[in-house]
Design a protein around this nucleic acid. Structure first.
Length: 230
DNA sequence: ATCCTGCCACCGGTTACTTCA
DNA sequence: TTTGAAGTAACCGGTGGCAGG
């Protein structure tokens, strides 16, 4: 469990903070909230933008005043998003103190940080689900193909068995068979054509029957891809 | 020990806004 | 300039865990 390195009074992140970093990357105009007036410059502008945004939120955003007015949607700056992402990578949820500290560092409301983490967890889960779906779809496809191949093989083996009805018990001399059909009888340890047809057919039958069950490795692989909690 | 209540955090689903092709 | 799709911040209602009475 990777906890954020914070204490009760500060968020000690080794990542640059908006408004605190010496030279934070300047977000492009498109990355900033379009409700704000366009700004030019470096850190001061970012700081000013955040301050203006916060002021606007105080007045208009229902997350602050409890609704009534049409909600305005805040666009987080690239800087804020990056920091949130960095923290999310280490921790998918925050305790109240961490949330408070992070909100302070980002000049956001704790509720906004909370909502961001909720939405981020949801996106993460959705992405995971989509990955699993794609994986299972591919797996299903390969199983279908395998099943088709095995059924074809079973038909061929049955055809061979029909063509060679007397071979089964004799172990006697038989006409030469195709190399691919020769195998060892598990009981008598002798190579016979009849054994091939029966044992291979049985094996094929079993393979067909068992292709519906996901192998343990697949099940655990899907489990392993779950995002680690806490 | 059990039940009830209030609080809080979280989740799934949805809405509404922003951005971009 | 308009428009539809995609991304996502914010909201809503429901649920479960926990503490206190």
């Amino acid at each position: 469990m990777a906890f954020l390195p914070i204490n009760s009074s500060s968020l000690d992140l080794s990542i640059s903070m908006p408004g605190f970093a010496s030279s934070p990357p300047r977000p492009s105009a498109k990355e900033l909230d379009m409700n704000r007036v366009p700004v030019v410059g470096e850190a001061a502008e970012e700081e000013r933008a955040v301050a203006e945004r916060t002021e606007e939120e105080e007045e208009s955003c229902s997350i602050n005043n409890g609704g009534g007015q049409p909600r305005k949607k805040l666009s987080l700056s690239k800087h804020q998003s990056r920091l949130l992402e960095d923290i999310f990578r280490h921790n998918h949820s925050l305790n109240p103190k961490q949330k408070e500290a992070l909100a302070m560092a980002l000049q956001l409301k704790p509720r906004q940080v909370e909502v961001w983490f909720q939405n981020r967890r949801a996106r993460s889960k959705l992405k995971q689900t989509e990955m699993e779906y794609q994986y299972l779809r591919r797996w299903f496809g390969s199983l279908t193909e395998q099943n088709r191949r095995l059924r074809r093989e079973l038909e061929e083996l049955r055809a061979i068995k029909v063509a060679l009805p007397a071979v089964d018990s004799s172990h006697g001399r038989q006409p030469p068979l195709p190399v691919s059909t020769i195998t060892m009888c598990p009981q008598c340890k002798r190579v016979t054509a009849a054994t091939i047809t029966s044992s291979r057919a049985a094996a094929t039958q079993t393979a067909i029957a068992t292709t519906a069950t996901p192998p343990k490795a697949v099940r655990s692989a899907l489990k392993l891809q779950q995002p680690s909690q806490g």
